[in-house]
């Protein structure tokens, strides 16, 4: 006899309780047939109430219900989200193909050249070349390029979406109040949790699944720092812009964005690093690249494979950080003098 049976009897709800004929799964304690000790007083949880009254659902019914609910709205959500996110799949597929089919003797020099253009630093470029040689020599090159391709695409999309979002936030306190908690949530959610709704929404074979996971996670810093950067622009300069009749477009492009650039670039640097962190985890949902090797190492207890792949990820992280920091320093030193 369950603890709460008397309670439902007293309320005269017995008929309603028994109307539900569905056989209930026994809870663990009932299964063992243990009697309650005198000091035990079960909390009126769903399971405990259910054992007294069949009409009340068990906790597992609730999770199942949530799942069914999610599955019913899924087609509707997909009709909206599919066309919106399809370009992401194309971009990822395209970039992956491009990075893996271009011969190494063409791609490595191109990457080194781009790194030089961005960082204007010979030492950073040499570092990049050495790391690339390591990837090639240890046959991790293709995996590293896959990871790099995904990071490129996701960072690009983060900047394209994140900078305008940051600008909107900086222009309106209301927008800032609404968006900030969302950004806080995206930043505090453990990375695994991102994957759960996305797995339901997209097929596991679709690149946009991990693409979305990475973008949601990595877009936060670029939005935050764009907002902050624009808000921190010297108000007396903005006042001068008003006094000389600059319209809002001229103020934004001519004054606010150039002066906020160091902060925006700091945001881009963080976004790149967070993309890398997430692309490794996203190997759980079929993101190709170095992450798959780490996953293999964990799943099959292949220590060596996992270890070398992990080391390659560290090198990639250093590479991305150095290049983007060098670019940031270049902007900073130009702007620091302006202060």
């Amino acid at each position: 006899m369950a603890t709460y049976t008397g309670f439902f009897d007293m309320l005269g709800l017995r008929d309603w309780c028994d109307s539900e004929k569905k056989p209930s799964l026994l809870s663990l304690r009932n299964l063992k047939g243990e009697e309650l000790a005198w000091y035990e007083f079960p909390f009126p949880s769903l399971d405990n109430l259910h054992s007294a009254c069949n009409a009340i659902p068990q906790t597992r019914d609730m999770t199942a219900g949530l799942e069914t609910g999610f599955l019913t709205v899924r087609p509707a959500l997909r009709t909206v989200l599919d066309p919106l996110t399809q370009p992401l799949s194309w971009a990822l597929d395209g970039a992956l193909t491009l990075f893996t089919t271009t011969p190494w003797w063409a791609l490595v020099p191109i990457i080194c050249f781009l790194c030089y253009r961005v960082s204007r630093s010979a030492s950073v470029t040499v570092l990049v070349a050495v790391f690339m040689a390591f990837f090639l020599f240890t046959d991790h090159y293709t995996y590293a390029m896959q990871t790099l391709a995904i990071i490129f695409v996701c960072t690009f999309i983060c900047v394209v979406l994140g900078v305008p979002m940051g600008i909107l936030m900086s222009k309106s306190d209301t927008t800032q109040r609404v968006v900030t908690p969302i950004l806080d949530m995206l930043q505090t959610l453990p990375t695994f949790v991102y994957l759960i709704p996305l797995i339901f929404l997209f097929k596991i074979t679709e690149p946009k699944l991990y693409g979305m996971a990475i973008i949601l996670y990595a877009i936060v810093p670029v939005v935050r720092l764009t907002n902050l950067g624009i808000r921190l622009v010297d108000q007396s300069v903005i006042e001068a812009a008003h006094a000389y009749g600059l319209d809002s477009r001229q103020r934004l492009l001519g004054v606010e964005i150039p002066l906020a650039l160091p902060n925006i670039m700091a945001g881009v640097n963080q976004t790149i690093m967070m993309s890398l962190a997430m692309v490794v985890i996203a190997s759980l949902v079929s993101a190709p690249g170095l992450g798959t090797l780490v996953l293999d190492g964990i799943n099959n207890l292949r220590l060596g494979v996992g270890f070398v792949a992990g080391f390659a990820i560290v090198l990639l992280a250093i590479l991305l950080d150095r290049v983007s920091k060098a670019a940031l320093d270049r902007i900073n030193s130009a702007e620091a003098k302006l202060k």
């Binding site: 010297d234 007396s236 300069v237 006042e239 001068a240 812009a241 006094a243 001519g254 004054v255 150039p258 002066l259 702007e335 302006l338 202060k339």
Partner: peptide
Amino acid sequence: VFQKFALFPH
């Protein structure tokens, strides 16, 4: 014309 000049630094 402003007290703190308010020139565009960039």
